[in-house]
């Protein structure tokens, strides 16, 4: 067991997978000598050389397109999009090609690749360095979307994503990079894709979240306990495929559910979670399922006041959770 930050866990996962499997390589902007703008690939260029830690020209569509081609060749690329906000130029390659490639083949063909993208706000990143993209990509059949919130999950899910036979969009919340520190297990520490995790047991109500919001929900649960409210916190970890059984189980257990995410509200992940609960746990509910999300505006200016106003935080979660508890 070692205590690590999220960014250290991500770096270690890439290092371990590259060490284990020579077909694993990293490609992205500034991932080489610079070690990535967040230092996620720090030291990898020196250790593995420029052919396995490839500084790409500034062209996101090509980064993903080249990764697809390499995966066709049996490689296991990890493509880094420097900020999730800049993934849009690569959407054609991700949606029309990566997600549909296997579907357009026969036989034993598959397309193993990972696309890493730092996402989310809270770092004074402003409009183009703060956005959330999970709902947009979770809608696409053929893609898997993961969003870990702890160092152990960040490492375990990235290693699982590299070993997965299909394309995985790996979202790493940049506010968690150095904020969250935690125990990372010895050994492989693989975390299966598609499995949620109860991060705190409770009986009165359930908070469902992922990424940075997981941390805020855990802090809120601690405060709720002081009020005598026992809150369960379910970490989705994988957004798609969603662990529906875990969502249903917590809803049935507590009968009151609040879903929290930082992405925009309309057609967001909360909508899908709530639909699953309504389909499978309606009879167990003691209150309408609630959601707390960012408003339907395109991220925020970087001023602290505006950023706080835009993002869900512990206080907002507490207020909503108390409303739910009192229902």
């Amino acid at each position: 067991m070692a205590r690590q930050t999220v960014i250290e866990a991500i770096r270690q996962a890439m290092d371990e997978e590259m060490e284990r499997d020579p077909s694993v390589f990293v490609i992205g902007e500034d991932v080489g000598r610079r070690g990535g703008v967040f230092l996620a690939t720090d030291g990898l260029h020196k250790k593995y050389g420029e052919m396995r830690v490839i500084d790409s020209p500034l062209a996101e569509s090509c980064i993903v397109g080249v990764a697809i081609g390499a995966a066709v060749n049996g490689m296991r690329p990890i493509a880094e999009i420097q900020f999730a906000d800049f993934i849009a130029p690569a959407m054609n390659q991700i949606i029309e090609e990566a997600a549909r490639f296997c579907y357009r083949t026969a036989g034993d063909f598959n397309l193993p690749m990972v696309i890493r993208a730092p996402w989310g706000g809270g770092v004074h990143g402003a409009l183009y360095h703060s956005q959330s993209i999970e709902a947009t990509f979770s809608h696409i059949p053929g893609l898997k979307v993961v969003a870990p919130g702890t160092p152990a999950d960040a490492r375990g899910l990235l290693k699982s994503a590299v070993r997965d036979p299909d394309p995985v969009l790996y979202l790493e919340h940049k506010r968690t990079y150095r904020l969250i520190r935690g125990e990372v297990p010895d050994g492989d520490g693989l975390v299966p894709i598609g499995k949620a995790d109860v991060k705190r047991e409770g009986k009165d109500l359930s908070l469902i979240a992922y990424g940075l919001m997981l941390q805020y929900c855990l802090e809120a649960a601690e405060k709720l306990a002081q009020d005598g409210v026992s809150a369960e916190v379910l970490d989705l970890r994988t957004i798609k495929p969603m662990d529906e059984a875990a969502v249903i189980a917590t809803a049935k257990k507590t009968g009151k559910v609040l879903v929290v995410h930082e992405d925009n509200r309309f057609a967001g992940i909360a909508g899908e979670v709530i639909a699953v609960i309504m389909e499978h746990a309606f009879d167990s509910l003691d209150a309408p399922v609630m959601r707390l999300t960012a408003p339907d505006v395109p991220a925020m200016p970087f001023n602290h006041v505006l950023e706080e106003a835009f993002m869900p935080n512990v206080d907002k979660i507490l207020a909503k959770a108390r409303e739910l508890a009192a229902y």
Binding site: M51, C62, G69, A70, V72
Partner: peptide
């Protein structure tokens, strides 16, 4: 077109 380039990069790596 980028797929072909990526495939070729893989060939070089291998």
């Amino acid at each position: 077109v980028p797929h072909a380039v990526g495939f070729a990069m893989g060939s070089r790596l291998e």
